[in-house]
Design a protein around this nucleic acid. Structure first.
Lengths: 249, 249
DNA sequence: CGTTTAATTGAACACAATCAAGCCCTGTGG
DNA sequence: CCACAGGGCTTGATTGTGTTCAATTAAACG
């Protein structure tokens, strides 16, 4: 079974980045029962309040997590790229406490939650890999708390863009299509806790300094490293140093 | 071995709230090797950048997580109460990406990380319990992102206070001493992303409406339920409905 | 082409930050 | 017992970052 053909191949690559899985573990992951569905932009993967019975993995396209206030204001919590598990957060929680939606059209692999739970209990290395995955997600949430609580609009915006670019690089998405952050200004505003108007002005200023190139509906970054100083971006929270070198794609 | 006498007794109660552990699992938790140390207020439990070799559990007193920006601004990420694991976040991550400090003087149980890892691999129900614990922590971080990104100063402050009160209630800390949030205004400011001056004004207003009672160095809440509407507090993210009823303290 | 969604801009306003000063406890040492 | 030092709290005045409201332009799509 070729990893590159299997819808869970990218997830496996993702898990192997920070955990050791032997051949049997890997086959078990790739052998999980799965239904792949194509969702359109804005399609819901997980809805807050829903009972959880599937464990979704993003195969292609981009997605985001969101949470709403009582009066309907939206906070975008995280952006997800292909190979990300969208629902390890709910693996043992029975009611979804937030929603996941598609940012662009793309494919999502739906795995029965019970099958993943079974693997978790039977293969402790798999359990560890999933655990690490969730820990890094938690670290990303913590960095978001810092970002929203302590940085100004300009740094916040730069930080979110830096994080996206670096995570794409980690997963070796280096093609020209993958260096684009496919978010509208309104979505970026909801991710940074800014108004759409102010987000527009911040982006305008960053563009004027040639730090980003905004296009309609997405943003490309000529060289994201230039943004790091502005973003106060320290990649410790992504735990890259723990990455395990591997040769297979 | 009496739970109430064991330094890890409260942790066990915590884990049992949302996961099933049989008698053997429970004995394994209580049998973990442990060194209890008393730390003074502001003492460090975990320091960002440190290599992780212990897994700490809060036995008594209160603690908080924090993360600093490059120019030294502090964001308080979460408050911890007795029975909370302070370091499951680092169970399989080798370098701490944030710090944990004591809010008040208190006792911390230091467990060798390898012993907890061993239990994780040998007892999958324990692994699940720890996993759920980390998932709920992640849910709390997500709610903080929403809180900082979308709510105004007044709601933010009320929300943090509500969360603390409800979590104390969940762990059955209902005595008069435990309904006090032992934070200075400066700490509350760093938790809410406000300046100390503005935090002071917000607290002043809440106190004027008899929603809170600030004292020197801590805050008591006559009836935290009154704060819920102001806080836009929805407890779904704490996953209380998943709580397992149990009779033993 | 007309409709829609996204981006843009200006003007007025508001919430919260900053600066600066003073107060009120509590603990300490003369 | 009093003076003083320090931390935490309080308050006013000023500044500024970001919001809101409102209107306009630009690009995509049927």
């Amino acid at each position: 079974m070729l990893i590159s053909r299997n819808p869970l191949g990218l997830l496996l690559r993702n898990l192997k980045q920070r955990a050791i899985l032997d051949e049997e573990d890997q086959q078990a992951v790739l052998g999980l029962p799965v239904v792949v569905k194509t969702l359109s932009a804005n399609g819901y993967v997980i809805r807050e309040g829903d009972d959880v019975d599937c464990c979704e993995v993003l195969v292609s396209g981009f997605a985001f997590r969101q949470l709403l206030t009582g009066d309907g204001k939206r906070q975008i919590l995280a952006i997800h790229i292909p190979g990300d598990a969208l629902d390890f957060q709910n693996l043992f929680l029975d009611v979804a406490d937030h929603s996941v939606q598609m940012l662009t059209a793309g494919e999502v692999a739906f795995v029965p939650r019970a099958a993943v739970q079974k693997l978790f209990h039977e293969r402790s290395r798999f359990a560890q890999a999933v655990f690490i995955n969730v820990l890094v997600d938690a670290a990303i949430f913590r960095e978001s708390v810092l970002n929203l609580g302590q940085r100004d609009a300009r740094s916040r915006m730069a930080h979110i863009i830096c994080e996206f670019m670096l995570r794409c690089e980690m997963m070796r998405f280096n093609g020209p299509d993958n260096r684009n952050l496919p978010m509208t200004q309104e979505q970026l505003a909801d991710a940074t806790g800014l108004s759409a108007v102010h987000a527009n002005r911040v982006l305008r200023d960053l563009a004027a300094e040639n730090l980003i190139q905004p296009h309609r509906g997405h943003i490309s970054i000529p060289d994201w490293r230039k943004l790091r100083a502005i973003a106060d971006f320290n990649d410790r929270y992504l735990h890259l140093s723990q990455q395990i070198m591997s040769n297979d794609l």
